[in-house]
C-alpha cells in the first residue's frame, strides 16, 4: 500500500492530468509540463492550500496584490477556467498557457485575443465593449485623456477594424485587423515558456533521480 501512495500522490490532486497527455495536446514537452506543475503548485497554494488556482491567487501572482481588480485579468482567468467552476485546474492551466507558447499556432492566439475582448461573449467586439476596455486601461494607468479624445480614438479604431460597417467587429475583421497590426497580439506570446524547465528545474532533477533508481 505504502508504495502506491508514494507514487500516486500527485494524481490524487483535483484536476491533475498526466504530463504525457498534456504534452500530446499542447506545444509543451513532458519535461516542460512537469516544470509547469512546479509553478502551478506554487500559484495554487499561495492563499488557499488546495492545489487549485482561485481568482485571488491569480490576481496575487499577476499584481502582488490579491485584491487588485482588473478587467483584463478577470477575462484571462475566465478564459483559463475552461470548466467555468471558479478555479483554474492544472490541465486548464497548461492547455491555456499553451496558447502563449512561441510555437502555438498564430490563428489560436488571434482567436484567444478575440474572445478576450468580446466581453459580453456575443461573438462580436462591439463599440461599447471597446470603450469600456479603453476606460479600464486608462483607470489602471497614469494616462489621462478627455472624453472627446477617448471617443475619437474608439471611433477611429472601430472604423478601421469594422470593414463592413455593421457596427461590430467579427472574427474575420479582427483577423484582418491583427494582420495589419501584429503588435496587438505581442502579449499572446511568452518567450519565457521556452525556458520553463530552466526556471523550475526541481521536478526535472527529481524525475531523473527516480528514473535512475
Amino acid at each position: 500500500m505504502g508504495c502506491c501512495y508514494s507514487t500516486s500522490k500527485r494524481t490524487r490532486t483535483p484536476g491533475y492530468e498526466e504530463p504525457t497527455v498534456l504534452a500530446s495536446q499542447t506545444p509543451f514537452t513532458v519535461s516542460e509540463v512537469e516544470a509547469l506543475h512546479e509553478l502551478y503548485k506554487k500559484l495554487s497554494n499561495s492563499i488557499i492550500e488546495d492545489n487549485l488556482i482561485h481568482r485571488e491567487e491569480f490576481q496575487l501572482a499577476l499584481f502582488r496584490n490579491r485584491n487588485k481588480k482588473n478587467l483584463f485579468a478577470d477575462r484571462i482567468f475566465d478564459l483559463f477556467d475552461l470548466k467555468r467552476n471558479g478555479v483554474i485546474e492544472f490541465g486548464e492551466f497548461v492547455r491555456s498557457l499553451g496558447l502563449f507558447h512561441p510555437n502555438a499556432p498564430l490563428e489560436d492566439k488571434i482567436t484567444f485575443a478575440f474572445r478576450l475582448y468580446d466581453l459580453k461573449q456575443t461573438g462580436f467586439i462591439e463599440r461599447d465593449e471597446l470603450k469600456e476596455m479603453v476606460l479600464a486601461l486608462l483607470h489602471e494607468s497614469d494616462l489621462e485623456l478627455s472624453d472627446d479624445m477617448i471617443e475619437s480614438i474608439v471611433d477611429k479604431t472601430f472604423s478601421d477594424a469594422d470593414i463592413n460597417g455593421d457596427g461590430k467587429i467579427d472574427q474575420e475583421e479582427w483577423k484582418a485587423f491583427v494582420s495589419k497590426h501584429p503588435s496587438l497580439i505581442r502579449n499572446m506570446t511568452l518567450p519565457y515558456l521556452k525556458d520553463i524547465t530552466l526556471a523550475f528545474p526541481s521536478f526535472v532533477v527529481r524525475t531523473e533521480v527516480e528514473e535512475s533508481d
Binding site: 499577476l62 499584481f63 476596455m133 479603453v134 489602471e140 480614438i153 502579449n187 511568452l190
Partner: peptide, 26 residues
Amino acid sequence: VAPATMNAFELISKSQGLNLSSLFEK
C-alpha cells in the same frame, strides 16, 4: 503619441492584466 493616431487595441494590450509574464516571477 498623438491621441488621434492611437489605436485603442494597442492601448488595451498594454494592460498589466494582460502581461502573464508576471506569473513566472519568483
